[in-house]
């Protein structure tokens, strides 16, 4: 990362931690209150592509970790710079009880399907999201299925195993 940007971030936000995570990856951990302003600051400083929003369930620490991965588009007629090779991994933690967070759609419009997916699979409510309707799942789940306390084997034995076989095969078993 360019050093001026690092200075900007550390001077503007309290409790922000910046460390290199891997080759060409920089991990930033920020407070949940400042996440939208960090995103817009990064966007105005060249990291203009939101590649992914992901979520991690830390059940023992009773928090969800939201992960925003940002990268920079290569500019026309220029060589590949260090910035374009770098990915920024922006992390923040929210409470696991009644999880709520602010939508990132005002800054990155393509956050919509990712937030919809996280809402469906983890049950996090994003304020300001226009349609938090089901995206992938067909059935209703009491616990969202990607949470750690969702017991898949119990779910399978409760839902799919009682369905009987049909016809001759049912007589044989």
């Amino acid at each position: 990362m360019k050093d001026p940007l690092k200075d900007k971030l550390t001077s503007a936000f309290d409790g922000i931690q910046i460390q290199p995570a891997d080759r060409n990856q920089i991990s930033i951990t920020a407070n949940k209150e400042s996440i939208l302003s960090v995103l817009s600051l990064l966007k105005s400083n060249g990291y203009n592509h939101l590649a992914l929003i992901s979520c991690v369930d830390w059940i023992e620490e009773k928090r969800f970790e939201l992960v925003y991965i940002l990268s920079a588009y290569m500019e026309k007629d220029k060589h590949f710079t260090d910035m374009e090779k770098t990915n920024i991994i922006l992390k923040t933690s929210i409470y696991r009880e009644k999880p709520q967070f602010i939508s990132a759609i005002p800054i990155f419009e393509n956050a919509e399907p990712y937030e919809r997916e996280i809402h469906e699979l983890y049950g996090i409510h994003f304020e300001g999201h226009p349609r938090l309707t089901p995206l992938f799942l067909e059935r209703e789940y009491k616990t969202p299925p990607f949470r750690k306390d969702f017991d898949t084997r119990k779910y399978v034995s409760d839902v799919f195993d009682p369905i009987p076989f049909v016809g001759k095969k049912a007589d044989k078993r």
């Binding site: 992938f136 799942l137 067909e138 059935r139 789940y141 299925p145 969702f150 898949t152 084997r153 779910y155 399978v156 799919f160 195993d161 369905i163 009987p164 076989f165 049909v166 016809g167 095969k169």
Partner: peptide, 16 residues
């Protein structure tokens, strides 16, 4: 995927 939450386990329960 035998213990997945979203896959059908025995297809012959639904169509022959």
């Amino acid at each position: 995927y035998w213990d997945s939450y979203n896959t059908i386990k025995h297809l012959d329960k639904y169509i022959p």
